[in-house]
Design a protein around this nucleic acid. Structure first.
Length: 820
RNA sequence: GCGAAAGUGGCGGAAUCGGUAGACGCGCCAGCCUUAGGAGCUGGUGGCCCGAGGGCCGUGGGGGUUCGAGUCCCCCCUUUCGCACCA
């Protein structure tokens, strides 16, 4: 009789007493750091998606443990951020009161889940003992010149008079009041992640990560090679327009220029007669929020002519300068040379406003048939010519006409370079990381502003800058950050001159909290240092990190950057934090995405209460391939439940019978086969097939009412350890072994010799179609196989009178007779 | 639009150095046990045809390579996820 409740309670208590899950952080001989993404502790409690992620990571951890590793598996809470703050606002509570309750609830749920967390090393990002070190990291970056203040646009709700995160803007409107959102320029703190972009990119070539995650990071970084070109203004003067282009070969086709509406030279270029129109266009562009502005969709191109001209450095022609919102200030230089012949966006724009379209690239065969490539009329039809071929040629491009385009590009840049009008340039999509948040629920940025000394970092010994308990933490009616309303917080004295100073009132981004939490876990015992050198050297970098793909870019990229920066500053001895990263899949329910509005969210508590944590774990990992996710169907959970209960029956029967050894060769082979299969599956995180293999073994051990021997069933019990740890521990004890399984047990090994069989069943095909299966001695020769096959009635019937033209024989696998 | 992944029984899913498609589980069917069963045990279960010996079809669709294709190649369709006017 299997009673999960009592079994699980018994072993939960035993593990806590024995400190089974707390490795010796200073003395472990084979340290293995198994990390999972720490959760945001929502008030709703633990989501099954969290548990799915953690359970898979725990399967892996326990497998490593049984293989002799000293596994460190910590957990913590990512509790700062807009999410908590908004929830608190919604329910009319204070995050400082709410979060501890949520954490307590999460902890209770996690403790019942059977995951081998080391609860003596947890982290809570909202704890001053944690965020003092988050602030310390800010200071390290500040002193290294990697934290700088600059102006940047933010979303702004004119009704709520507050800054909004991109996620808070829905369809161009404020998610709270429905007012149209605009932009505002604000001075904010940035981390100069772009300084590290080449290293962040280069290391992707060797870190062992899920392929799709690597690709996502590469795309996010968005490296593109091209050139920076300078266009003088036709009106003369010092200023010139700089553009980034990946197609410098098309410069002869640049018939106009387009600037982002916010571009600083718009003012200078605009002629008096155009001023009114330009101003109103700029105002309209500023009224569209950042999110909406980027939604390409079906938006038709808009723009206005500034009245100004620039000089195309290749043709020497004056070309008109326009502004349009399809050019983004934050990419490249915020200005483009428009080549409507070879860029669809420019083409659309030129069509819209009747601007000249001049083709300058053509397929090689077209050029070959032309008399003079420097003067070639080409009809583009309804779209720009953008298809790239290796041999396409330049046309209508002066002395470069007729050259292969890719070579022409190099020549043209060289040519312009001699005039000081251009140079090769690599551009990135990645921007510096804005860490300022004009909100309440985050760590205050440790900076002071002094009338005498200017910007002053808070001295390390004054950390933490404690976030005060503010009754009114709501983002203000006046656009001022919540902390800016608390005089007792922001009024202070300057540590360098002793004069009056004010504190920075923005808090930092949650992603900063999570960018280093894994560095803290092993060092939580120390309150005089963030990262203990010895502990860090022993346990880091992380051996395996498992998490969701939704963090493929931001969190994983930011934490790589912070680690790299700390490495350069001498705080950690490695520059990549996660040796191995594996993404897990997403879990859906009954074929549909889980959501609160649909009311189909799985509440782990209910299932654990009803079936026990072991059954729930087993089902979560059985329902599909871990790295791809799966469909949680209530009807499916009884499978694992029956399986575990049959394991109990089998072990009880084996113990009652009390026999050892391997009396049955086929069963012994099945045991070895299963060990092989399960070992490989566990190593590759294929937990669903590992569980299936154990089910198969159990079926074999119990076939036709047989009772397994103790030796037959012991490996099964051990391999059940990572899957159903409480039950495996109970059965381990039942087998007379010394608890804990995870301290004393070791993963079984298989004997390749025991895998072999005397005979094999192989399929016989005639002309590729299966006609029979025959039993052969293992390793039988082709002749023997053929003889046996031809003795088979069904084979003979299909061979008939025809002669065998060809025989394909794969020993122990297949025989195919080709007749005709 | 770009990028990534994926389409297999009634269902969740196995099997990809090309070699017996459907492991394992759910469900379903039959039988056993039981006063009873939303319990347990045994066996069966891709579809169609059938003269009961077998035959044909079958991994989103269409072509191809091969003795042999779920697996490799080309074209198309669908779904999911990420990015999205990136110059």
């Amino acid at each position: 009789m299997y009673d999960p409740k009592s079994v699980e309670e018994k072993w939960r208590r035993s593990w806590a007493e024995r400190r089974t899950n707390e490795p010796d952080l200073d003395g472990a001989a084979r340290p293995y750091y198994n990390l999972m993404m720490f959760p945001y502790p929502s008030a709703e409690g633990l989501h099954v998606g969290n548990l799915y992620a953690f359970t898979g990571a725990d399967f892996h951890a326990r497998f490593q443990r049984l293989n002799g590793q000293d596994v460190f598996e910590p957990i913590g809470f990512d509790a700062f951020g807009i999410h908590s703050e908004n929830y608190a606002l919604k329910v009319g509570a204070h995050p400082m009161d709410l979060i501890p309750k949520s954490i307590a609830n999460f902890t209770r749920q996690l403790e019942r889940s059977g995951i081998m967390f080391d609860w003596s090393h947890t982290v809570d990002t909202t704890d001053p003992d944690y965020y003092r070190w988050t602030q310390w990291i800010f200071l390290q970056l500040y002193h290294a010149g990697l934290a700088v203040k600059k102006e940047a646009p933010v979303n702004w709700c004119p009704s709520c008079k507050t800054v909004l995160a991109n996620e808070q803007v829905e369809g161009g409107r404020c998610e709270r009041c429905g007012t149209e959102v605009g932009q505002r320029l604000l001075s904010q703190w940035f981390f100069r992640i772009t300084e590290y972009v080449e290293r962040l990119l280069a290391n992707l070539d060797w870190i062992d990560w899920s392929q799709s995650t690597l690709t996502a990071q590469r795309n996010w970084i968005g490296r593109s090679e091209g050139a920076l070109l300078r266009f003088r203004l036709a009106a003369g003067g010092e200023d010139s327009l700089e553009v980034f282009t990946t197609r410098p070969d098309t410069i002869f086709g640049a018939t106009f220029m387009v600037l982002a509406p916010e571009h600083p030279l718009v003012e200078e270029l605009t002629t008096p007669d155009r001023r009114e129109e330009v101003e109103s266009y700029r105002a309209a562009a500023a009224a569209v929020d950042l999110v909406e502005r980027r939604k390409a969709d079906e938006r038709t191109k808009t723009g206005v002519f500034t009245g100004g001209y620039a000089v195309n450095p290749a043709t020497g022609e004056d070309i008109p300068v326009w502004i349009a919102d399809y050019v983004l200030m934050e990419y490249g230089t915020g200005a483009i040379m428009a080549v409507p012949g070879h860029d669809q966006r420019d083409f659309d724009f030129a069509r819209q406003f009747g601007l000249e379209i001049r083709p300058v690239v053509a397929p090689a065969d077209v050029v070959a048939g032309a008399a003079d490539p420097a003067s070639l009329d080409l009809d583009l039809g309804d779209s720009a010519f953008v298809e790239h071929t290796a041999d396409e040629r330049l046309i209508n491009s002066g002395e470069f006409s007729g050259q292969v385009a890719s070579e022409g590009a190099v020549r043209i840049v060289e040519w312009l370079g001699r005039e000081g009008l251009g140079e090769p340039r690599v551009n990135y999509r990645l921007h510096d990381w804005c860490i300022s948040r004009q909100r309440y629920w985050g760590p205050p940025i440790p900076i002071l502003y002094c009338g005498e000394c200017g910007t002053v970092p808070v001295p390390e010994e004054d950390l933490p800058v404690v976030l005060p308990y503010l009754e009114q933490f709501k983002p203000g009616d006046d656009g001022i950050a919540p902390l800016a309303k608390d005089e007792s917080f922001y009024r202070t004295t300057c540590p360098s001159c002793g004069g009056e100073a004010t504190r920075e009132t923005d808090v930092s981004d949650t992603f900063l909290d999570s960018s280093w939490y894994f560095l803290r876990y092993p060092s939580t015992d120390f309150d005089d240092r963030a990262i203990d050198p010895e502990r860090t050297a022993r346990w880091l970098p992380v051996d395996t990190y498992i998490g969701g793909e939704e963090h493929a870019v931001l969190h994983l990229l930011y934490s790589r950057f912070i680690t790299m920066a700390l490495h350069d500053l001498g705080h950690v001895p490695f520059e990549e934090p996660y040796v191995r990263f594996r993404k897990h899949g997403l879990i859906i329910r009954e074929g549909a995405k889980m959501s609160k509005t649909k009311g189909n969210v799985v509440n782990p508590d209910e299932y654990i209460e009803r079936y026990g944590a072991d059954t729930f774990r087993t089902y979560l990992m059985f329902l599909g391939p871990y790295q791809e996710g799966g469909d949680f169907r209530d009807s499916g959970i009884v499978g694992p439940q029956r399986f575990l209960s049959r394991v109990v029956d089998a072990v009880e029967a084996a113990v009652a019978e009390g026999l050892g050894g391997f009396p049955d060769r086929d069963v012994e082979r099945a045991v070895h086969q299963t060990i092989k299969q399960a070992t490989e599956d566990f190593a590759s995180l294929s937990f669903n097939t590992a569980i299936a293999a154990l089910m198969e073994l159990l079926n074999a051990l119990r076939a036709a009412g047989r009772v397994p021997t103790l030796d037959e069933i012991r490996p099964l019990v051990i391999m059940l350890g990572p899957i159903a740890p409480h039950l495996a521990e109970e059965l381990w004890e039942m087998l007379g072994e010394e608890p804990s399984l995870f301290e004393n047990g070791s993963w079984p090994t298989f004997d390749p010799a025991k895998l072999a069989t005397d005979t094999v069943e192989i399929p016989v095909q005639v002309n590729g179609k299966l006609r029979a299966t025959i039993a052969l001695e293992t390793g039988a020769s082709e002749e023997e196989a053929k003889t046996a096959a031809l003795a088979d009635e069904s084979v003979m019937r299909h061979v008939g009178e025809a002669s065998i033209r060809k025989t394909i024989y794969v020993p122990d696998r297949l025989l195919n007779l080709v007749v005709g």
